[in-house]
Each structure stands twice: as C-alpha cells, then as structure tokens.
Computed example of a mutant assay.
Amino acid sequence: MLNGRMIDPRLRTLRVLREEGTVTATAEVLHLTPSTVSQQLRGLARDLGVRLLEADGRRVRLTPAAYTVLDHTDTLFAQWERARAEIAAHRRGVSGEVRFAAVSSALAALVVPAAARLRAEHPGLAVRMAEQESEKVFALLLAHRTDIAVLIPTSDGPPPDDPRFDQRPLLDEPQDLLVPPAHPLAGDGTAELAAAARDPWIGSPDRADQHHLMLTACAAAGFTPRIAHHANEWFAVSALVAAGFGVALVPRLAPLPPDDEVVRVPLRGNPVPSRRIITCVRRGSDRQAPVAHGLAALREAAAHHTA
C-alpha cells in the first residue's frame, strides 16, 4: 500500500501537528524525532514562502496560512484515498493489509471476530490489530499508522462532518451496574441507576470516555456519584467491586469475571445509559477493498450483539 507516500510527507506532518498540538507529540505519533519534525515544517514553510507556525508558550500555533494549506491538504489526501481505491479495482482478489485500532472492549468483542472472519474469507489480506484509547486514534489515522478505528466519540473529538474523516455508527452499547453478589440490587434482575446513589463508586478518570459517561448518566438520574476509588482496567474495576469497595458502571461488552464474583445488573429507566461505538476511517479510504471488507466484517460482528 502506498499510504499517501505520493504526497509530500511534510503535509502529513502538518496534519498530525494540527491534531496533537505540540512538536513532541507529533514526533511520537509519526515515530520521528522532534528535530526532524521541526526541520520538515521549516522546510515546508520555506518552500511555500509563508510562515506556518508561531510560538505559543511551550506549544506552537498554526498561522492562517497553515490553515489554508491544511484545507487543500485535506482535500488532496481524501482524493488520493479514492484514487487508490480505483487503482486497486484493476487488481484481482483482495490483498494488502488492513490495520485496526480500537478501545479494549470493542477490540475483544468486535474487532477480533471481524479479523477472524477476514482471515477465513480473504486469506490474502493481512490483518493487524492494536488497542488504543479513543482520543489517540485520530492522529494515528492521519499518520497512516492505522486504517480503521473503533472508538467511543467524545466532545473533544472531530465533528461528524470533519473533512479528514468518515465516521459511522457501529453499535449502541447499553451500560450495566456492576455490584458484588451480596449487594441488595444483585438479585433484582434490573434496577434504576438512582438506586445506587448512596453507594461508593469506582471511577475511571484516565479512561475519559467511560468516566464522562458515568458522570453524565448519574447526573441524569439525579445524583452525583461519591467516587471512592479509581481504576481503569476492567479486571481492576471488577476486583474492587467484588471485594465490596463500591459499584461501577460498565459497558455490556466489557469482559468480566464469573457471576459468583460480580453481578451485572441491567439498568431500566428513561434514558437507559448507553454509549455509541463508531468506526472512523480516513475520508475516501472506505472504497479501498481492504478497508471496505474490514468495515463489513465489523458490521457483521456488531449485528451479533444487536440481534
């Protein structure tokens, strides 16, 4: 796959810088040194004859000229993705590589089954998978380090009409209340979220999308959760709940220990807390056979959770 190498790579660096905000973070995403990133951007500015960056404390700020360059760059990259799809249509069979990046629960429940399906149906297509938090995947897409992201949208993410990306709903995933077996709600079948208002809660501040969803759901239920402990990985959250240190809000797809250790309590009410899982690809790339087949396999995997 050419991965945009027909386009000046310095333009890709500028796109990632817009997403990341600092030269250091841009270098990390692109697997370059900060000095290389700075050198590329200085050279691009010199060749274009305009200033692209201005100092802004420890960060850098894009100039109006840089945003003009980026507007045209976004169009150029989207058109190149479509061109690659049309060129690939002249080849026989499905080959190449498709790379997935996904949040952990979606990786386990959606991407792995999708990858297994691709392996069985298209043996000539190499599949790569990586766990990534939602806020990281956009820069990885721009850096051509992944092709399909499966993520939880947040208020800080790009809007749906962002010209760089094609974002599509994949699955609306209910949230469950996680309690220890001895909890009063453990045997009720379903519960209102407000019934756990007086319990201590397990928060996940480093898992920003899930933590924000918990706070929003509790606020909608009429209370602010008393967060007693912090944990991010589901096995750690489950261990705290199992030992009686609090309750937690967990997505339906999250892998958990057996029911004799913790109990999922489906929530009822209006609205029932849920999170939307979406796919995101570089705009125009969905026409390329590896990406198109990868998206189709994801939709098939998601259908098993909505049937």
Rank of each mutant, 00 (worst) to 15 (best):
A143Q: 00
I227S: 08
F165T: 01
A243T: 14
A186Q: 10
E300V: 11
L48C: 04
L151W: 08
D260K: 08
E135R: 12
R283L: 05
Q175Y: 12
E192A: 14
A25G: 03
L295Q: 03
I152W: 09
L76C: 05
G21C: 05
L298A: 01
D286Q: 14
R264W: 05
L110Q: 10
V98K: 02
N3A: 15
V272K: 06
I202Y: 03
H304Y: 12
T68N: 02
P153A: 12
L178T: 05
R5S: 14
A191C: 12
P34R: 06
H305R: 14
D209K: 09
V111M: 04
L140D: 00
P257T: 08
V263R: 15
R18A: 09
R58K: 13
V265Q: 07
H293D: 08
T13K: 01
P200F: 08
D8E: 05
L53F: 06
Q132Y: 02
G189C: 09
V291Q: 05
H211Y: 14
E86V: 13
A191Y: 07
A239W: 02
R84H: 06
D47W: 05
A289L: 11
L32I: 04
R198I: 01
R91N: 11
H229E: 15
A303C: 08
L107V: 05
P271N: 12
P9G: 04
P113N: 05
L185V: 10
P257C: 11
A101G: 15
L142D: 00
S134P: 05
S104C: 06
G93K: 13
Q40M: 03
A219C: 07
V272T: 15
M6V: 12
F138S: 00
P9K: 04
R15W: 00
P255C: 13
A228N: 07
T75W: 00
T26F: 00
A101S: 15
L14H: 04
Q175I: 14
A78Q: 02
L48D: 03
Q210V: 12
R119F: 06
T36P: 03
P184Q: 10
R61W: 04
L295F: 13
E97R: 15
L17W: 01
R168I: 10
H122Q: 13
L151C: 11
L70R: 05
P266R: 11
D74F: 00
